[in-house]
Amino acid sequence: MIWPFRKKEYTDEEFLNEAFHLAMAWGKDWLQPVQGRLAKAHPQLNEKELDHYNSVVQEAMKFGHDQVYSMAEIHGKKLAKRNLPRYFPKSFLGQIAKT
């Protein structure tokens, strides 16, 4: 996601969010490393920073996928929202409670 109007300075959290969006974007780059695309959007990032953001994003996606597979193996189609606190932090549950 390359925005036409960029801020001059970004927080670590903003870089991570953008890296995650790049990794999850549907298409030929879905679930692929993000260093090249993130570098194109933010040329001020060095190789070490790009590798760090990619590593965190890949780890987060793996954790999410592992959790989904684990819940599917344990509960199959019987997983109720009331069981989710055992698997996810409260901050995440607050977001899905709105659904």
Results as ranks from 00 to 15, higher is better:
M24I: 01
P33W: 00
S70Y: 03
H42R: 10
G27A: 11
S70I: 05
P4K: 06
V56I: 15
K98M: 13
K78Q: 12
W26G: 03
T11Q: 13
L50F: 02
F20T: 07
I2M: 10
F5Y: 12
E9Y: 13
H75L: 06
L93H: 07
A41V: 04
T99A: 13
R37S: 00
P4V: 02
E73K: 14
K28M: 15
D12G: 06
K7G: 10
A41T: 03
H42G: 02
E9T: 14
E47F: 08
Y10Q: 07
F15I: 03
S55G: 11
A41Q: 02
K98H: 08
M1C: 10
K8Q: 10
Y53F: 14
E14G: 03
L31W: 01
R86T: 15
S91F: 15
Q35C: 08
A60I: 00
H21Y: 11
E18V: 09
W3C: 12
F5V: 11
T99W: 07
V57A: 04
Y10V: 11
A72H: 06
S91R: 12
E13W: 01
K78V: 08
H42W: 04
N46H: 12
G27N: 07
G64V: 03
A39M: 11
K62E: 13
Y87C: 02
K48D: 09
S55V: 14
R6I: 09
K62W: 14
G94F: 11
A25L: 10
F88S: 00
F63I: 12
I2P: 01
E47Q: 12
H65Y: 12
K98A: 09
E49T: 08
V34H: 00
V57P: 00
L38T: 00
E47W: 08
T99K: 09
K7I: 14
L79H: 01
E18H: 10
W3L: 12
Y69D: 15
S70P: 03
P33L: 05
H65M: 10
R6P: 03
K48G: 12
K98C: 04
V56Q: 01
H42Q: 05
V57M: 07
K48R: 12
N46M: 08
A39P: 02
A97Y: 13
L16A: 05
S70T: 10
W26R: 05
